[in-house]
Design a protein around this nucleic acid. Structure first.
Lengths: 215, 215
DNA sequence: TTAATAAGTTAGATTAATCTAACTATTATT
DNA sequence: AATAATAGTTAGATTAATCTAACTTATTAA
């Protein structure tokens, strides 16, 4: 059984590793806001437990076992977020902090029940995939809006890095998952995009467009 | 802000103090399954924080502040139990262990939402009162079934010490809160009672009758 | 290619929560 | 009232998770 703390390291390892398949002590340190020596000793500990492969001065990689355990925590996090939105009436910008705590609850029955009540959802309220009971996760290949071209018609499928502020920004502009967007034009000097949706037109900065994943 | 551990001590203090208004280090030690020296130093700490009144070799008493904070944790526990039963379909014998973890979640919005969805319940699934947002708790004076007399017709209002085993025992006999019971006879030698309800008759041992509260 | 910068490590301290062993105080029993 | 039993305390050790300070290795840039 992993501690609350260990679970947070596993989760961070999983998230930071999605692209490169590995991550660094430094990146973990920044992401968890925990100093490097602390992260260093935790890596030794997780290595002892067979959850990561770790050698001095090299990037850290989750083992298969570590990957599975991390995915199961993320499963609990995302099921919780979905439950909070779908069954309790929270907004998608409110659920992260609650799920961050609920994800550590030890009770298979609790999360199985959520899963059942939600009719076995495949994605969370931010469009991120929910790993299955075995820790398997299916990534859909979405495109950042910023990589689309003028004239394209797309559907908003997910958001990356779903901070409170960013989601409130989207709420204020009526942008939610599933909405259809049409790219009217792209400003060459700053990469901002003029998009129309739901009978209106908005200009979105490059920073915003990079965080919107479309299909 | 109290730690997870401190919250557990506060809760135990509150529960153990309900009758006498105070409790002992020994009782706390047994109830929490934590050795006395550990409890002793925690009492000093909680005393420093103004949550208990504590002097060497004397019983421990919660301060008003301590009582309020304890009641608010119990509120979260009982709201959670009610939510699990009413909104998630769990049995009353399944919810204690989950609520034991959920009660420590820091999120007023989460529990306010439960409260609202449950339409501001006054009791939990075991008939225990739910403290209000200010930590006020209203105790209804129920009578143990064991103190009733032959011929009395009563309604099952609450159970004390709701262990998994005991609740399964009640489930198996169709005994649930709100059910009407009639006392047919009382065995003088062991205090067991013959009661009828829902068109059947059962014999309940004294141990069981002491744990059933009726009105 | 060497010097500067960034990343990573080691050593040692701190805090919270726990324990055991040994001692003291209180309460109960003869 | 003396003694045995129970309850409570003190001292000191342990573990998990964190930190700072100092040092080492690797990477980047002049």
């Amino acid at each position: 059984m992993n501690s609350y703390t260990e679970e947070n390291y596993l989760k961070a390892l999983f998230i930071l590793s999605t692209e490169a398949g590995e991550t660094t002590v430094n990146a973990l340190s920044k992401s968890l806001e925990i100093k490097m020596p602390t992260v260093n000793s935790m890596m030794k500990k997780l290595s002892e437990k067979g959850l990561v492969n770790y050698e001095s001065y090299k990037p850290v990689k989750l083992t298969e076992k570590g990957k599975k355990e991390a995915a199961l925590i993320i499963r609990k996090h995302r099921l919780t977020e979905m439950f909070l939105v779908e069954k309790m009436g929270f907004g998608w910008e409110q659920v992260h902090d609650i799920a961050e705590q609920v994800e550590h609850i030890k009770s298979p029955a609790f999360f199985d029940k959520m899963d059942e009540l939600l009719a076995y959802p495949k994605v969370d309220p931010h469009g991120s995939p929910i790993p299955d009971k075995h820790g398997k996760i299916v990534w859909k290949k979405y495109t950042p809006l910023s990589e689309c071209i003028k004239g394209q018609a797309v559907v908003l499928a997910a958001v990356t890095h779903s901070s409170d502020d960013f989601l409130k920004f989207l709420n204020a502009r009526g942008l939610h998952l599933g909405i259809s967007l049409k790219i009217k034009s792209i400003e060459p000097f700053d990469g901002s995009m003029v998009v129309s949706y739901a009978k209106k037109t908005e200009t979105l900065s490059l920073v915003v467009c990079e965080k919107l994943l479309v299909a």
